[in-house]
Design a binder for these strands. Structure first.
Lengths: 246, 246
DNA sequence: ACCTGAACACCGTTCAAGT
DNA sequence: ACCTGAACACCGTTCAAGT
C-alpha cells in the first residue's frame, strides 16, 4: 500500500473531492438559494481556484446532477414487505418527502434526474414494484411514478410561506405584509381569497400540510388503480372517461 | 453553462414595451430554455441596449414575474356554473394545463407567483370557490389549491421525454439512447425499471398522460373532501388518519 | 418619458503549464 | 493525479448623461 501523498501546500489541500464539493454546494443552496451556487463561490469556500473544479466535473451542470444524486442517496427507502401496496407506497412517499423537505431550494433538481443515479433508480424501481402490486397497467405505471415524485416536489416548492427568510421574525413580517395586501383586495371580487387570508402564506402545521398532501396522492392513486383494473364498473366519483364535464 | 450564441434577427426600434419584452422572453424561453433568457439577449432581439430594460423593469426578477403573469393571463378560466363542483374543478385544471403545456420550460415560474397578479388571483379565487362548494374546510382549502397547481406544473415538468429537443428525429434518438442505457441495467436489481423501458422516457400519448394525471388529482381531491366532511365514517381506502401503515 | 455610454463586479469555461 | 495563471466571452446592474 503506497504511502499517502505528501502535501506540501499550506492549506486544506487535497480535501477537494466530488463529495465534498457537492456537500458544500448543498449547504450553500440551503442557506442562500440555488442562484448562490456558483463555481467561484464554491471554489472560495474550498480555498481553491475555480478551475480546480473542472478536474472533478465536466461542467457546472454535472455539479447539479451530483446534488440531485446526493439528495436521492439520502433517502431511506423502507424495506419491501408483504403489507398492502398502498401502505407501502405511502411510506415510500413519506420517506422521499422526509429526505427532500430539508432542501426546499433544490428539491426540484431531482424531478428530472431520478433515472440518472443508483439511488434514484432504486426509488423508481420500488415505486414501479408497488404500483405493479396494485395492479396498475404497465402502460400507466411509469407515468404515474412520475406524477407522484413531481407532486411531492411541488408540495415542497409551494409550501405556504416557505420562501420567506429563515428566522421567524422576518418570516412573520413577510406573512403579515402579504396578508395585508390580500386584505386590500376587493372582497366582492375575491371573497374566497380574502377569507383564506394568511392561510395562503403560512401553514400553521407543516406536518399536517404534508400529511394531507400525501393522503390526497395516495387516495387518487388508489382510485385510479381501481378504475383501471375494472373499467366496466366505473364509479361516478372516480370515472376516468366519458364524463360530460364541460 | 452558456447556451451556444445562436442569435436571431433583431426587430424594429421603438416597439419596446413591457408586454413586448415579456413576449419576447417567453418565445426565447420556449425555444432555448429559461437560461437563454438574459437581458443582453433580449436587448439584442429588440435592437436596444441592455440598459434600456431598466426603465421598464426594476431588475431581471421582475421580468420573470412578468412572464408568470402573462402565462396566467393566457389561461381561459371557464365560467362559473351550477354543475357539480368536481366537474367544474376538473375543467378548471384542464384549462390551466392547456395554458401552461405550450410552455414547459417556464411553467414552473408560476407556481410561486399565483397570488401576485390579477390573472393568478382569479384562478386562486375560482379554485377556492369550488373547493368551498365541495365542503372543503377553510383550513385546508388554501393548502389544497396549492397542491393542485403544483401538481399540474409538476406533471408538465416531468412529462416523459419532454426535455429531448424539439425536432422529432433527435427526440427519437435521445429516447433510444436512454432506453438502451436502461436496458443495460441488471434486470435482477431493477426488474420493473427494465420492463418499463422506453415508457419512462416517451409518452405515446401526451393527452392521455395528462388526462390520467388530472383524473388522479380530482379523485384524490374528492376522496379527501369526503373524508374531511365525515371523518367518523372513514372508508378504508381513503382514511386520512389512524392508519397503521409502517 | 425613454434610452445610451461607460464602468463595475461577477460569471462559466478553455488551455497550457506547473507540481 | 490534481491544481493554477492567464485569458475569453458573457452576465446583471448603476449612474450620469443624452434626447
Amino acid at each position: 500500500m503506497p504511502a499517502p501523498p505528501r502535501r506540501r501546500r499550506p492549506i486544506a489541500r487535497g480535501t477537494l473531492s466530488r463529495d465534498a464539493i457537492i456537500s458544500g454546494a448543498i449547504e450553500l443552496a440551503d442557506r442562500e438559494g440555488l442562484d448562490a451556487v456558483t463555481i467561484r463561490r464554491l471554489a472560495h469556500h474550498h480555498n481553491v481556484t475555480p478551475m480546480a473544479f473542472y478536474w472533478h466535473f465536466d461542467d457546472k451542470d454535472k455539479i447539479l446532477d451530483g446534488i440531485a444524486e446526493q439528495l436521492l442517496a439520502g433517502i431511506d427507502v423502507p424495506p419491501l414487505t408483504d403489507y398492502p401496496w398502498r401502505d407501502q407506497l405511502k411510506a415510500l412517499l413519506e420517506a422521499v418527502l422526509a429526505g427532500l423537505r430539508p432542501h426546499p431550494n433544490i428539491a426540484d433538481l431531482v424531478s428530472t434526474r431520478i433515472l440518472e443515479s443508483d439511488a434514484g433508480l432504486a426509488i423508481a424501481e420500488r415505486t414501479l414494484e408497488l404500483l405493479q402490486r396494485g395492479g396498475m397497467p404497465d402502460d400507466n405505471a411509469p407515468e404515474i411514478s412520475g406524477y407522484l415524485l413531481a407532486s411531492l416536489i411541488g408540495m415542497i416548492t409551494v409550501e405556504p410561506g416557505r420562501r420567506f427568510g429563515g428566522d421567524s421574525d422576518e418570516r412573520d413580517d413577510e406573512v403579515r405584509v402579504r396578508t395585508a395586501s390580500l386584505m386590500a383586495l376587493p372582497p366582492h371580487k375575491y371573497p374566497n381569497v380574502v377569507r383564506a387570508g394568511s392561510r395562503l402564506f403560512a401553514s400553521t402545521n407543516p406536518d399536517a400540510y404534508y400529511r394531507l398532501g400525501v393522503e390526497m396522492l395516495v387516495t387518487g392513486l388508489v382510485g385510479v388503480a381501481t378504475h383501471l383494473n375494472a373499467p366496466q364498473k366505473s364509479k361516478r366519483s372516480t370515472g376516468v372517461a366519458s364524463r360530460s364535464s364541460k
